[in-house]
Simulated scan of single mutants.
Amino acid sequence: MLFRAYDLTIDSDIDLQLPAAKGKADIVLKEAQFTLPKLYQTLIYRKGVRAQFGENESCIFLHWPELANFKMTGGKVLEYEKLTDDEDVFRLFTLSEALGMVLFQRNLFLLHGSAVQVGAKATVFIGRPGAGKSTTLSAFAQQEHAILSDDLTAIWFDAVGQPFVLPGFPQVKIWESAVDNLGFDKNLLQPAFEGHNKFLYQQPLSVFPTALVPLHQIIILQRPYSQKVGKLKLIESPIELFRHFPLPPRLLEGAALQRHFEDCIRLIKAVNILKMRRPRNFNLLKKWVKQQVASAEG
């Protein structure tokens, strides 16, 4: 089966429940048997499970105890060993950090954040856990702005250094409080399979872009009463964006660290990176979304 995500065609032996694709595969996802190398604990948790990470000269490995093992090779092959019978949970783990490591091997710039298309351009929301990235994205989605990514955002630079967001897949995980306060119909939503009180909203494919979206800005969501607001300075960008790298920091060593640093500088030279307070409540969030849309389209 062929699927489309992050402007790439994935040839998968399992149903990823993503937009269908045609043509030649960029990534092959298949079941295999392999031996894990020495593993290290990460700070990545999903469904209450802590990920373990390992690597050798050519491959990256990810181990989720009792759920899955993954092996990523050359940005082209993603092999897996399934350790759970729950297909929905396994798909969640496949489409999160495992696919993210393949994107990393393809030299894309990655952020732990959500992205939305407003007008012709993309805005990315990043922030510490609980900052409201997915809730903010869902507020835009409720107003029919295209979801580009939730949780993992991939950015590509063209020959002159202009950044573009690669459309991931048209879905967002929403907390129940956001469902109730933003006007989503709970009867039309699916469980998010993360072990939290979250729902999965699937945006219609008619809204989802088929091409890369120029990046307009990156917003770092701060607490409602935070004094740390304003435009990020050039010298601050590598340290700040390093905090929002979605994969094990051990990957950013040697040439990879240098590339990450250079991409941070290219980003801040091309677009604004802003620290902004998140709205205090859902009514203010709705007003804030309208302000952001007016600003982007003005």
Rank of each mutant, 00 (worst) to 15 (best):
A5K: 05
A5S: 09
D11V: 05
D13R: 03
A21W: 04
K30M: 12
A32K: 12
A32R: 12
A32Q: 15
P37Y: 02
P37E: 03
L39W: 03
T42K: 13
I44L: 15
G48Q: 11
G48R: 12
W64M: 00
F70L: 08
T73Y: 05
V77F: 15
E79T: 10
D86M: 11
M101I: 07
H112N: 15
A120T: 15
A120W: 07
K121W: 05
T123M: 05
T123V: 13
F125G: 02
P129R: 10
P129Q: 08
G130H: 10
G132V: 06
K133C: 03
F140H: 02
Q143R: 12
D158I: 02
G161T: 05
P163C: 07
L166M: 12
G168E: 02
K173N: 09
W175N: 00
W175T: 00
E176H: 14
E176T: 13
A178S: 09
N197R: 12
F199P: 08
S206C: 04
T210F: 01
V213F: 04
I219Y: 14
I220G: 02
K231H: 14
L234V: 14
I235T: 08
L247W: 11
H260N: 05
F261N: 00
D263P: 02
C264A: 06
I265Y: 09
A270L: 08
N281W: 09
F282N: 02
N283I: 07
L285H: 03
K286R: 15
K286Y: 10
V293C: 05
